[in-house]
Write a protein that binds this DNA or RNA. Structure first.
Lengths: 207, 207
DNA sequence: TATTATCATACCGACAGTCGGTCGGTTATT
DNA sequence: AATAACCGACCGACTGTCGGTATGATAATA
């Protein structure tokens, strides 16, 4: 699929001709189905978002999990997914954060909250009903998505800095601790009760 | 300057020829000073960041302001700046959030934390020393920048949705309230003590 | 039913037009 | 004289277009 190409070369560097060669279709055929290169990107991103949503949905709607457990599962699930594909993720890292991929990142940054915020809102509402989370604004889900995306950005930055040897492991741990602390305080739970990243995962990437 | 052109047309839509025509310089002259179109963008963004930094710095280092006052001034200052340039901001809004400007947004999103996070860290440290903010991780500044950028994204979205008439004023107010609540909880201050946007400003843009 | 005409859809690839960037040459400055 | 500043014709690469063809379904006709 074109998905692989975008991930392999970065959106801007990927020419339409590359796609044609890879898929072995003619120029006319592709432009028959997609109005433009950008429309092709939209299609690919829609697939990505749908896949992510499908992966996350079961955890959110699990009837026998507490809100705390759901959040922990969510965080752990994301990290497990990446850990299992470590080589792929590392290869992607370089192109994903390149200038040639800014539009892709940007579109995801706008698309992710649309489906993730309502899910988090549901979990937060459940936690408040359980009396575990402190009461508060109903739109806290969006705030948390913002925090998670911000943490994700930082993770990429820190990984590169750590590889370059410009920062010690402790700096990385401290940065993630700040995010964890923020999330816990926003939800009003005890410090340390919502582990964002476990020590092992941290060591895996930043050790 | 090229700054106006980027803001007027969006980075991708702005051709190098446009810049040449506007500045009345030759192609050779421009490429004598800038390695590429992207380097030109970097130069413009550096100017932007420097200007923002210079505007914010005095508030942060003011010796006779409490941490709370500094944060309030910061928030209010940003909003005042935009309110005074309302027409300009509105004109910019359309092109700023266009796909042709994704790289610009992205680069700023990466550049802003670099200088803003340390400033916020300083304010937060001061607040903790004053005993007003709760103790916590030393890297909280970065977390707050993430929240503020996220809020900024949301503001743009909400403005467009409000113009389209798809959401009522109360939804907007609720969204911002969630961000304010989050910031207050992260810093450990009383609810309502760190107003993010005042009612008048909210009415100005979303009324 | 058998045959032809008509039309829409899927698809092809040469081509146009635009863009970012280069390079040999010219002018100004020290 | 030597270096920096500057010029603009030109290059290769790119996206999107457009006239045309193949195919199959449907309708009209004998």
């Amino acid at each position: 699929m074109a998905q692989q190409l975008i991930l392999a070369k970065g959106y801007e560097q990927m020419s339409v001709q590359d796609v044609l060669d890879e898929l072995e279709v003619s120029r006319g055929a592709l432009y028959h189905y997609f109005d433009s290169k950008a429309a092709l990107l939209d299609g690919v991103l829609q697939r990505m978002v749908d896949a992510g949503m499908a992966a996350v949905a079961p955890v959110v709607s699990a009837p026998d999990l507490s809100a705390c457990e759901k959040l922990t599962h969510l965080f752990a699930g994301l990290q497990q997914w990446k850990a299992e594909r470590r080589d792929l993720v590392l290869e992607l890292l370089r192109v994903w954060y390149s200038d040639d991929n800014a539009l892709v990142r940007d579109k995801l940054r706008q698309g992710v909250p649309t489906y993730l915020a309502p899910m988090l809102d549901a979990i937060i509402a459940q936690g408040r009903a359980e009396g575990v989370f402190a009461p508060g604004a109903p739109d806290t889900g969006r705030v948390m998505v913002g925090l998670l995306l911000s943490a994700q950005d930082l993770a990429g930055e820190l990984y590169l800095a750590r590889q370059a040897g410009t920062i010690p492991f402790e700096t990385v741990a401290g940065s993630f601790a700040a995010y964890q602390e923020a999330i816990e305080r926003i939800l009003g739970v005890r410090a340390g009760s919502l582990p964002l990243v476990d020590e092992a995962t941290l060591r895996l990437w930043f050790g």
